[in-house]
């Protein structure tokens, strides 16, 4: 069958000459392998229309989904990482930062914003996995601390959306201490009776899980997210056994008592609206008023 067999071995096409489908038109699901158009994916909250796999998304997309009219005001964007230890592994931390900052100017591994959800104010601190693995360094700790202070001052509930590989090793003990810093600051919020919702998304691991992510008045997660302290690879290497299917997923954590519920991304906004209604801090909101009338005159970030 010469037609199907390569006549000459070792024929290969230079990457540069390969014809690829234009980027961004089609999306193939990481989980089920089915394809859909990027538009369909976006219309479906960036979840696979076939298997409901929740793709990782940026803080800005979460803000669009959560806040009334997609309007919000970004907070504390002036706080930026620096390489104060001159840390160099295979690459210099300073180079990693330059690259990360170039790809997402003015952003960090966490983006903090205030806006309204169903007419009620909420501060959201959302981690960005695409920024150095969403790793928690000094900036993440500082922006969370400032968000907490903002919540204390304005009596606004806080939600942290975790999406992180853990602590930022390039900041060594400083990143470790962010666990203590954020947890200590959260005690203040608790004492003031201001609700804190911890929303865990794929992935939430390491020092992030072992500090603020597990400290919500309510802890909830997106379906199928990886949530744990030690990463699966570390555990596998350590105990020299394969891990069972579904180990460390949201469903696993719900079953073991560490989550209050799992929420599909399409229901997130509705659910938050309900929660803010229950845990009301702001008594002045008229629940019967039409939603649009109450959208605050908040400017969008950009």
């Amino acid at each position: 069958m010469g037609w199907f067999k390569r006549l000459k071995e070792g024929v290969s096409t230079e990457t540069i000459n390969k014809k690829a489908a234009p980027d961004g038109l089609w999306h193939q699901c990481k989980k089920c392998g089915e394809t859909c158009t990027s538009k369909d994916l976006a219309d479906n909250f960036h979840k696979c229309p076939h298997c409901n796999y929740h793709n990782r998304i940026t803080p800005e997309l979460y803000f669009d989904i959560i806040f009334d009219g997609g309007k919000y005001k970004e907070l504390f964007s002036e706080i930026q990482s620096k390489d104060f230890l001159n840390f160099t592994d295979l690459r210099a931390y300073s180079d990693r930062l330059v690259e990360a900052k170039a790809s997402k100017p003015g952003k960090e591994a966490i983006v903090t914003a205030v806006g309204k959800v169903k007419r009620r104010e909420l501060v959201v601190a959302a981690m960005d996995f695409f920024y150095i693995g969403g790793s928690m360094g000094s900036v993440v700790g500082e922006k969370i601390s400032r968000s907490i202070e903002y919540c204390l001052e304005h009596k606004v509930p806080l939600m942290i959306i975790s999406k992180s590989g853990g602590a930022r090793m390039m900041e060594s003990a400083f990143s470790l201490m962010q666990m203590a810093k954020t947890s200590a600051m959260l005690t203040k919020l608790g004492k003031a009776g201001i609700p804190f919702f911890s929303f865990m998304t794929d992935p939430t691991t390491g020092g992030v899980t072992a500090s603020y992510a597990m400290l919500g008045d309510l802890n909830f997660a997106e379906p199928g997210a990886l949530i744990g302290f030690a990463g699966p690879r570390v555990i596998k290497e350590f105990i020299r056994k394969d891990l069972p299917e579904g180990f460390q997923t949201s469903e696993f954590l719900l079953e073991h008592g560490f989550l209050d519920f799992i929420v599909d991304r399409k229901d997130l906004r509705e659910r938050l609206g309900d929660l803010l209604h229950f845990f009301r801090v702001d008594e002045h909101v008229d629940d019967l008023a039409p939603e649009t009338e109450n959208i605050a005159p908040i400017q969008t970030a950009e």
Binding site: I79, Q80, S81, K82, F84, S138, V139, G141, E142, S145, E171, F174, M177, Q178, A180, K181, A184, M185
Partner: peptide
């Protein structure tokens, strides 16, 4: 603990 952290 609040003070721990280096950034610009």
């Amino acid at each position: 603990y609040r003070k721990m952290g280096e950034f610009e």
